[in-house]
């Protein structure tokens, strides 16, 4: 049983690390500011979430796990607010997003 939990937390931590790196790669690769935010939100949500879940499995039912849950809730509530504030400020400053060509005519 503890073997199974160990393997599961391994998988979660490695997958979380991979998602964090993918998000950071996207942060470098994406062409403009608004698309970069999408890449960053991968690191913030699923990367961090999987890492926290993996650590929770290692901690078991202790106060450490409760603290990890609190970190997760903080990320879940505060990060979208900061992202939204960034996007809104960028738009208010007049930073135009790069849009796909033929946007209005070819809407699905």
């Amino acid at each position: 049983m503890s073997m199974l939990v160990d393997v599961l937390s391994w998988v979660c931590i490695v997958a979380g690390g991979i998602f964090c790196v993918i998000g950071a790669i996207g942060l470098v690769r994406m062409p403009d500011f608004y698309t970069r935010m999408h890449a960053a939100s991968i690191t913030d949500t699923i990367g961090a979430g999987l890492l926290l879940f993996g650590m929770m499995l290692q901690a078991g039912f202790t106060l450490i796990a409760v603290k990890l849950v609190m970190i997760g809730l903080l990320l879940l509530f505060a990060n979208p607010t900061a992202t939204h504030a960034l996007a809104k400020a960028a738009r208010a400053r007049g930073l135009q997003p790069l849009l796909a060509s033929g946007d209005d005519s070819s809407k699905p």
Partner: peptide, 16 residues
Amino acid sequence: HANSITLTPGTITVEA
């Protein structure tokens, strides 16, 4: 609603 949209990768609420 706005936070849920922003939290989902691929969509970001710019104005709410």
